[in-house]
Design a protein around this nucleic acid. Structure first.
Lengths: 242, 242
DNA sequence: TATATACGACACTCACCAGTTCCGGATATT
DNA sequence: AATATCCGGAACTGGTGAGTGTCGTATATA
């Protein structure tokens, strides 16, 4: 009953995520090779028939389940059994693919990156319009789950540089890149001066949103994001408040 | 050998912290009472002599040790044995005072608040001067440890509202209060307009500093803090960059 | 000095979890 | 259809940590 209960809770968001991961999972480092080695010296007279190839179609579900559990329980609270159950897989199957829980989590977090390259950059003609166009219910909800994952691995980051790198690449860099891009176009448009610390400014809203969610535990809604843009980001860029 | 090793690592910062906690630990909820109950009906003819009172002088050391371990290992990585060893106490002693590890951590984090009410607010005459006067090597180092503690309990915050409240009161509220105060005086001075979202603005630098430390894992030095003030905080308040 | 009490140390129970092994059944290849 | 292989499930091992109980000792009170 509990297993069903758990997998029932894995929302449509998770299912969707699994699909996205699935789509983007062509370029990975699985397929270790030895599976398909046929030139075995001890090959008998009859050509060795192969039964079945490793079922990589489930990898996406497993990674999505891992992210799910990770966001709900945190790194230490997450057990491999939970992930297996939620992915409707056996624990042994997970260990056939990943050597340890730590590696599984690293791969899961890394996969997060491949899921959000979809939306095209808005181009409304003004910086404020672009920034506000980024505020979509989907991205808020999406971000909330990522932040829970962040919280879940926060204490690991100082002990696992690899996880820290992967998390940065998957969660902070994409967002910062979008903001940088928007700022760059605003400069080219002549809307703002080129003389700003864009590196700092592109991390402003991620910082505030993260802090508000994790530490203050207050909701990040459209209204808050707009006041963040109007009260902080734009004034910092030299655009006075309306 | 290991015990000595561990306690040797508990830096002078910890010792200092223990002193501060010690100073401020008059108003607490220990001293459960039953210890001193004398009106026992079964009291024999000879007045019951009391041997020794609970040694509350060690509480500060224990809480400081807990914060120490918490910042290094995170909530789940921290064991009660580690805390006891580092405080040169027995595990049983800890359980005589706190009913569980969770309660111990809550008390430890709560005590963090009592340690930083010391420094007087700077008053340089300008907002920029005040904000920069807040940048002291001590407060940077102090903040770094607090942020490690934050990271260590981050994944707990969504599951333990009590810990979340205590952490907010101990770590974010004091900092925000200082900024609010500085802004208020700047308004009274006529330096900035009263028409700002000071609630948001007072959390700006804590947000950015936290994000930079925990997620980006980059150092927060004086130079960074100054550019944060000059590039973001002051412009957001309507004070243009120099 | 005598005594009650809390102390630090240590051994112990119990539960949980990472990782392993084994098995019956499903499935793709031949 | 036959078979090699992988699958999910479940049992198992080994280690670890929360919480408890005991014991000899230190110490504040009387």
């Amino acid at each position: 009953m509990t297993p069903l209960d758990l997998s029932a809770r894995s929302s449509q968001l998770t299912a969707e995520l699994a699909d996205q991961i699935d789509d983007a999972l062509a370029d990975d480092d699985f397929e270790d090779g030895p599976d398909e080695v046929v030139d075995d010296a001890a090959a008998s007279d009859t050509a060795p028939r192969m039964g079945r190839k490793r079922d990589h179609t489930r990898d996406a579900d497993i990674l999505a389940a891992a992210l799910d559990v990770l966001s709900e329980e945190g790194y230490d609270g997450m057990t491999v059994d939970m992930v297996a159950t939620r992915a409707r897989a056996g624990k042994a199957t997970l260990y056939r693919r990943w050597p340890s829980k730590a590696e599984l989590v690293i791969d899961a977090v890394a996969c997060l990156k491949k899921t959000d390259a979809s939306a095209p950059l808005p181009d409304t003609g003004t910086l404020r319009g672009d920034l506000i166009a980024l505020i979509k219910p989907h991205s808020i909800e999406d971000g909330e789950k990522k932040l829970q994952i962040m919280a879940g691995i926060a204490s690991m980051l100082s002990r696992s540089p690899e996880l820290a790198d992967v998390a940065r690449a998957a969660m902070v860099e994409p967002r910062a890149a979008i903001n940088r891009q928007l700022f760059r176009r605003a400069v080219e448009r002549g809307e703002i001066s080129a003389d700003h610390d864009f590196e700092l400014l592109s991390l402003l809203s991620p910082s505030v949103v993260t802090y508000r969610t994790l530490m203050l535990r207050k909701p990040v809604d459209r209204e808050f994001l707009i006041s963040l843009i109007d009260e902080v980001v734009l004034p910092a860029l030299g655009i006075p408040r309306a």
